[in-house]
Structures are given as C-alpha cells and as structure tokens.
Computed example of a mutant assay.
Amino acid sequence: MVTSLRRVYAAPESVAAAADSLVHTGRPPADAHEEEWPQAGAVRAAIDAYRLWLCSRVAAAADVLDFEQRLSAGVFDVHGK
C-alpha cells in the first residue's frame, strides 16, 4: 500500500512521538503506529461529506457553464423569436 494514500488518523500521542523521533534523530520511528485516533471515523465522515458537497458544486458549475456556452451559441431561443 502506498503510505501517502493511507487514511489512518493516528492518535495525537503517536503523532507527537513520531515528530519527536524526527526532531531528535532525523528519521521516523522504526516501529509503525497503527492505532487510530478514536475520532477518526468522524473525521472520515466529514471529509466524505465535504467531497460530496464539493462534487455537487463542481457539477452545478459545469452545468451553468454548459448552459452559458449553449446560450451564447444561439442554441436556445430565449427571446421567443
């Protein structure tokens, strides 16, 4: 698994330990911290909700742009002629 794509939200204590190791040794800790922060589920739900909202906004903007392009191309008869 590609590490940068993992969605593991470590407990704040684990993050602090990893940061301490980086500061003092210049290397990440040798042991992996696999335990998750208890609020990780809520964080994922918030991220998923935001992505869904953002996708709907992008889709709506694309619809408006398509309508404006079609309108300027004369596809619609908005003046009833």
Rank of each mutant, 00 (worst) to 15 (best):
R27P: 00
E34T: 14
D77K: 06
A73N: 08
A46M: 09
L52H: 11
D63L: 15
G26W: 02
H24T: 12
A40T: 01
F76R: 01
A61C: 11
Q69V: 11
L65C: 06
A11E: 15
A46W: 05
T3E: 15
V75I: 07
V58E: 15
A46R: 11
S14L: 06
A11Y: 11
A19T: 12
D48Y: 06
V64H: 12
K81H: 10
P28I: 07
A30T: 05
R57C: 12
V64M: 07
F76T: 02
G74P: 03
A18P: 00
R57A: 09
A16Q: 13
A30Y: 02
Y9D: 02
R57W: 03
V2W: 02
V43C: 05
A11T: 10
G80P: 00
A45S: 10
A18T: 07
E35A: 15
D77A: 07
R6L: 11
A10Q: 10
A42K: 13
D20K: 10
D31P: 00
P12A: 04
E13W: 07
G80I: 03
D31E: 15
S72L: 13
M1T: 11
W53Y: 12
L54H: 15
H79R: 11
V75F: 12
A73P: 01
E36N: 01
A42R: 09
F67M: 03
L65T: 11
S4N: 12
V58Q: 12
A60Q: 14
A19D: 15
V64G: 00
I47M: 06
V78F: 05
H24W: 07
F76N: 03
G80K: 01
A32H: 08
D48T: 12
R7Y: 04
P28N: 07
Q39I: 01
E36K: 04
E36Q: 13
V15W: 01
L65Y: 08
A32T: 05
A30P: 00
I47D: 06
V58P: 00
A46V: 01
A60V: 02
E36P: 03
R51E: 15
Q39H: 09
V78H: 08
R6Q: 15
A18Q: 08
T3K: 14
A46K: 11
A10L: 14
A45N: 08
A16H: 05
E35M: 11
C55Y: 11
F76L: 07
A11V: 12
H24E: 12
T3A: 14
G80F: 03
V43K: 12
R57S: 05
A61V: 04
A18E: 13
E35C: 08
E36C: 02
S72M: 08
H33V: 06
G26V: 03
S14T: 04
A17R: 11
A19K: 15
R44W: 03
A59T: 11
R51N: 14
R44V: 02
A19G: 02
R51F: 05
E36G: 00
D20S: 12
D31H: 04
